[in-house]
Design a protein around this nucleic acid. Structure first.
Lengths: 229, 229
DNA sequence: CGAGTTCTTGACACGGGCTTGACCCCCAAA
DNA sequence: TTTGGGGGTCAAGCCCGTGTCAAGAACTCG
């Protein structure tokens, strides 16, 4: 669960933090917490959360100021909460840089929906590409590019498909059939020779020493496993 | 003021359209109007507004469906309006792809603030400044002009659409289908031949050496990618 | 209505990727 | 030692994806 979105919850009331923590973590988010504005800024800088849920009323800084400071260096989506429904507050928060504004009391469903919307928007933006690193191997799934030691290696479409399937289950053993069905198609389940040839070609391109593979490991009689980490 | 943000207002009640038109145009926005879902989709496709303000209750399509169809080929921010404040409606709208949801009656100030927030977010995302530079290629999206080494190259409308789509996702691979749906329209998803011809023509105009492209890169079996770095 | 441009469609050449087959090694069992 | 199976490598040929040219259709503007 290391690639679940990380949400920073900022509120000075422990009870609300708890409510948000339970609600969000129960829906697959990893929750970070802060109770003051200064703490929130420090945490955001250090942990780089994917979303910030920020209460307007904080002991040290106004929520507005927190957003303004945050916006100087970060584009993380910010969802502000407040007991005050006054229009002026909403306007001020949004113009300070918040992405959304929710007035208490609010429904949990709406909160979660707005969280989803904010994350979806951020994911489709510039920083949304999942680029994964395995040892000195860097794989940019969105750009369809693979680098080893900062040198790009050109993979054919099939080779890339194969690598992607292995990557999606990195560390686990995949049977020949599983790999073939996912990378080629359901009707290719028995074409193990295809797999052997492509694994060989792929190893020649990404392994430092293809004879002694460190990434694509053979699991004799079963299949392959992407190792390294 | 040809580079003011263009907002598409969709509502079947003329009085509300008028209210929104006056309010928005009074604050520096150019306003387009539609009274049905079908009209809205057609207008969005043709005019490419910067923001859509969409009422949930429409005579032909539900607002939710409009968003869903729109999201198949466009990332334009959508702000939904409704007289219904039920949480289920909000959740449904946001999950359908809307960026924000506002319950009538709402304050004009809040509406404008949420419009500003949505536009700010979109502007900071892909496509930031209206004029972008890639190597010795300069593209002015607002003015529909393209320069290479300070010499203007004349692109046809289609060629410009194609370039714009690639530019909005610069660096990432776009599948043939994605490009076709965004540059031609949702029903052109399979016309890959159109894409090949236009890519070829575009390359001849903007690539220093069309045989060895540096901007529009082919990702065999997948699609194209606008390179640079 | 006509001239120019743009868009679409079709035909075709080329190159590279995919598949296939042959042959190798290694290891374990007979 | 022989034999068979699993796995790996190499090379060749087919096929498909891609790029290009050109002509007809559709559109735009004077």
């Amino acid at each position: 669960m290391s690639n679940c979105p990380r949400v920073l919850v900022v509120d000075d009331e422990a009870s609300i933090r708890k409510f948000l923590r339970v609600s969000l973590s129960g829906h697959g988010y990893r929750v970070l917490e802060a109770s003051t504005g200064a703490e929130a800024l420090a945490c955001a800088r250090q942990e780089r959360p994917d979303l910030v849920v920020l209460d307007v009323g904080l002991p040290d800084l106004e929520g507005f100021e927190v957003v303004e400071q945050l916006r100087r260096w970060s584009a993380v989506p910010v969802l502000m909460l407040s007991v005050r429904g006054a229009e002026q507050d909403k306007i001020r928060a949004l113009d300070a840089g918040a992405d959304d504004y929710l007035t208490k009391p609010f429904g949990l469903g709406e909160l979660l929906a707005r969280v989803r919307a904010a994350l979806r928007r951020a994911a489709s933006g510039p920083g949304g590409e999942p680029v994964r690193q395995l040892g000195d191997l860097r794989i940019d799934l969105a750009a369809h590019r693979v680098f080893r030691e900062d040198r790009e290696v050109g993979l054919t479409p099939r080779e890339f498909d194969l690598l992607r399937v292995l990557l999606q289950h990195a560390g686990r053993v995949l049977t020949h059939r599983q790999i073939l069905e996912q990378a080629w198609g359901p009707e290719y389940g028995h074409e193990t020779h295809l797999l052997r040839v492509n694994v060989s070609n792929l190893r020649r391109k990404i392994e430092p020493d293809p004879v002694r593979p460190t990434f694509i490991l053979t699991e004799p009689g079963v299949g392959y496993r992407l190792g390294g980490s």
